[in-house]
Design a protein around this nucleic acid. Structure first.
Length: 591
RNA sequence: GGUCCCGUAGCUCAGUUGGAUAGAGCAACAGCCUUCUAAGCUGUGGGUCACACGUUCGAAUCGUGUCGGGAUCACCA
């Protein structure tokens, strides 16, 4: 049980004994005491004052006195300042936390709940390579999956690949026209980039043709439709839907190039999936659902045969779920896929890591699933994250203002290498070890940069200023880990050593922070927010670094102090490694 | 126009269900390596928490309004 829980219970019991009134945890607040005051945790008394009809100071005195004499294994001192009851927790309490958890790597993780959750993330289009936005999506998805596991869920990581549609046909048409049979192999180009280049070529040609048409007095809107290359693309999409042999072959070939490229990128960034869905297999799903919805009167049919749902009572609009020609639309496919996920895995919860531009879509999806009575509909959660923007505004692939994922990863690794060489601390490393270390640090900086921000908020990335390796960064925290490991290589804490039983302020501050880790994991899970973990890890590392410069571990004042500090250091390293594990960031032994 | 989100230091971000004098990092400045890794530590300066009103013992946090920015409202996905 956490300290805050213990304090809550002690306070509730004490108030009952003292005043005969029953309170719950929600009736009063417990905060960490501000550094400028004496104490570790603080009970805010104001909320209790009214119902107890006592002055804050008098209440504080009586409660503080009672707590101290009746719970002396938990509290060692108290003081009252302006309605705040500041409690000092007994050193023995912190030492027992240390004793119990210092070398347990499962610390903070919850028991299995026997609940299944699916996390869907990444969802790439197969017509162009991944960019910075996809990286945020991938890192978030992977991390939230780990966080859910740590909270005791069985997790299935899934990916829906948008492998069909007009955008892919654009790359295909451009390849037919301009490639002269070139392939990724013949041009030594990574497959996804290769295909992406033809997507760009399509847009160049399209623009050119439109300008020609506009020069001949055609309106812009008309030119958009009439440009020959666009017409050809649309014809190709029709052929694809008809299963035309030649088109299908080209489609399969170009997609296979893209997948090769994606696989490489995913491998580099440490992304993986338990289940991959392809839109070409799911885009026809949902037809039975439409029938079912009509029967249940959730949907209604218009005169032209199209099928709709009326969500005006939910503050939304009417929404089409089936075209008049009987084909399903995007939302219907998603309903179908949601059903399929349940049929296959009997999931209890479904998390979609998708950008906030689709907030409306997911609101609708959840509502429809609820109205259809799907078993887990209430547990559909859209983990909506903000776009990554440049100082100049949004990234636009058509205008070439995207930050390419592969380029950025490579750049980060290169910079990590340069820093490392400059510092010259690992000159004895082998080539292989160096490569590993550069990747660990470079990716660590990148992942931390993207994960430390609240997912809901859009964030700005400035390509002119490269991502930092100092201060509030991944490498800072990795460095703290490496420092500790360097000490632990020299000496491990003894099995049953005598340890100092009084704590200096920084020793205690570290233990207080370490004690909070389980609640941090829980909060990250309920909030679906990896940044909670990221910011906690920083707080911990920062506190450790202050401690490290202030107090020597190896040359501690006494053998007991040394033993204590070795244990604290060990537990700190373990928690950093664990927290970074939840973020998908490796920690080095040396750097 | 309807709905939703955002506005905190020069920049990038924290700030638990309302709590004490609003915090970090970067950038700037001043210090600290003959002692466990200086990718570090310590200190200084920097704020009308967009603005106004309201709720309350107490508001960056809750409510209303204003200003500014963004997303979305397709028989596209």
């Amino acid at each position: 049980m956490s300290v805050t829980r213990e304090i809550q219970q002690a306070v509730i019991e004490s108030l009952e004994k003292l005043y005969g009134q029953t309170f719950t945890e929600k009736d009063f607040q417990i905060n960490q005491t501000k550094p400028e005051f004496e104490g570790d945790y603080t009970v805010v008394l104001f909320a209790l004052v009214k119902s107890l009809r006592k002055a804050p100071d008098a209440l504080g005195k009586e409660l503080g006195e009672y707590l101290n004499s009746n719970y002396n294994q938990l509290f060692s001192a108290y003081n009252i300042i302006k309605g705040f009851l500041n409690l000092t927790i007994a050193d023995s309490y912190w030492l027992s936390v240390l004793d119990k958890w210092h070398n347990d790597t499962s610390y903070g993780k919850q028991e299995m709940k026997n609940k299944k959750v699916m996390v869907e993330y990444s969802s790439p289009n197969t017509n162009k390579p991944l960019h910075l936005g996809h990286l945020r999506n991938n890192f978030l998805g992977w991390s939230i999956a780990e966080i859910m596991k740590a909270n005791g869920y069985d997790v299935i990581k899934s990916c829906i690949v948008n492998d069909r549609g007009i955008h892919i046909c654009k790359s295909m048409i451009a390849w037919e026209k301009f490639a002269n049979g070139a392939t990724p192999q013949s041009t030594h180009t990574k497959g996804d980039h290769f295909v992406g280049d033809y997507y760009v070529k399509f847009n160049d040609e399209y623009k050119k043709q439109m300008q020609e048409l506009i020069a001949k007095d055609m309106s812009k809107e008309e030119a958009e439709k009439e440009a020959p290359i666009m017409k050809e693309t649309q014809e190709m999409l029709v052929k694809w839907e008809q299963g035309d042999e030649k088109v299908m072959n080209l489609w399969r070939t170009m997609n296979s190039w893209v997948y090769e490229g994606f696989d490489e990128t995913y491998k580099n960034i440490g992304s993986d999936f338990d289940k991959t869905y392809y839109e070409s297999n799911t885009y026809l799903l949902g037809k039975e659902t439409v029938q079912e919805g009509l029967q249940k009167n959730v949907f209604f049919k218009k005169d032209d045969g199209s099928v709709w749902i009326d969500l005006t009572n939910d503050g939304l609009d009417q929404k089409l779920v089936q075209r008049k020609d009987g084909t399903s639309v995007y939302i219907t496919q998603d309903i179908g896929l949601a059903m399929q996920k349940y049929d296959q895995y009997k999931i209890d919860q479904s998390i979609y890591v998708v950008g906030d531009e689709q907030n409306y879509h997911f609101k609708v999806l959840k509502l429809i699933c609820q109205k259809l009575g799907m078993p887990y509909a209430d547990n559909i959660f859209h983990l909506s994250y903000g776009m990554v923007e440049l100082p100049t505004g949004k990234m636009k692939s058509r205008e070439g203002t995207v930050v390419d994922a592969d380029d950025l990863v490579e750049e980060m690794i290169t910079i990590a290498g340069n820093h490392t060489k400059e510092l010259g601390k690992v000159k004895d490393f082998t080539e292989e070890e160096l490569k590993d270390l550069y990747e660990t640090i470079g990716l660590g900086a990148l992942k931390y940069f993207l994960l430390r921000v609240d997912p809901k908020k859009k964030m700005i990335f400035n390509p002119e200023e490269s991502i930092d390796f100092h201060g509030h960064t991944g490498p800072f925290i990795q460095y703290t880990h490496a420092r500790i490991k360097s000490i632990l290589r020299k000496e491990q804490p003894k099995d049953k050593g005598n340890i100092s039983n009084s704590l200096l302020p920084l020793e205690k501050e570290l233990l207080i922070t370490l004690e909070q880790y389980p609640q941090v994991i829980e909060a990250a899970g309920t909030e679906m927010d990896p940044s909670v973990i990221a910011n906690y890890a920083y707080q911990l590392a920062k506190t450790f670094n202050s401690f490290y410069t202030e107090h020597s571990i190896m040359n501690a004042e006494s053998a007991e102090k040394k033993e204590l500090r070795l244990l604290i250091a060990q537990m700190t390293a373990n928690v950093i490694a664990s927290a970074f594990g939840l973020l998908g960031i490796k920690v080095p032994e040396r750097m």
